[in-house]
Design a protein around this nucleic acid. Structure first.
Lengths: 109, 109
DNA sequence: AGTCATGTACGATCGCCATCGAACAATAGC
DNA sequence: GCTATTGTTCGATGGCGATCGTACATGACT
């Protein structure tokens, strides 16, 4: 029981390699998703449908799952909708400063 | 004239996207090279031959060039040897905290 | 029931890139 | 000049992943 959730592919961040995170963030679509998630700190989560995706729906689904498997996000289902949330605090604990510096670099253009 | 060097594929960091850096760092061999370069702060550079590479020489050459093209390293030739150096200060200016947090995450295992 | 919306799963395709070996270039030293 | 060392370049190969469309599942709503 080393999972942080009952969902099968949500990893415990202690078992996530920094390479996995870097690889997940090194895709333009995924980095864009992370940026949008970081921008909405109000409810701290976004509906899948609210996320701007320049790709087909199935491709977006693929990327969202990749982010979950990399330990960067978690998902919560509510009816037919799904809410996506950044694991900011856990990521900060596991990789201090990493996400913030990436987000800052993204925001800086 | 936006190059920071006369060498053709050494980019000015101002023109380097964070995606490029993340993509370059998301390869295990390259991240390992960066780690070794960061570990030697005494002369601040390493001979190519001193870098431990778990791949063939030609593959290592490919990765070293990829790091240069991503703006992460520069190279200096001296006879038959080549010295590789991390662009720490420039990277810190362009992407504050990014390299340090990655290195810290790597060091933490 | 039927229909619509939301998202997943699957199979196919396609391009990129990590890898290797072999051949080459350049320099140091004999 | 010759040889060894160091690193590059080239072509080929193999695999991974990003992308798409279609079909499917699920829940909401009438």
């Amino acid at each position: 029981m080393t999972k942080s959730s009952d969902h099968p592919d949500v990893p415990d961040l202690a078992e996530v390699d920094v390479l996995t995170v870097l690889q997940a963030l090194s895709d333009p679509v995924r980095l864009n998703i992370v940026r949008q998630l970081a921008a909405c700190s109000d409810p701290a989560e976004l509906m899948c449908g609210q996320i701007e995706l320049p790709v087909a729906k199935s491709t977006g689904s693929h990327h969202l799952k990749a982010l979950v498997r990399a330990g960067i996000t978690t998902e919560r289902e509510q009816g037919t909708c799904k809410y996506v949330r950044l694991r900011r605090d856990e990521l900060e604990q596991r990789f201090p400063g990493l996400l913030d510096s990436v987000l800052q670099a993204v925001a800086a253009g």
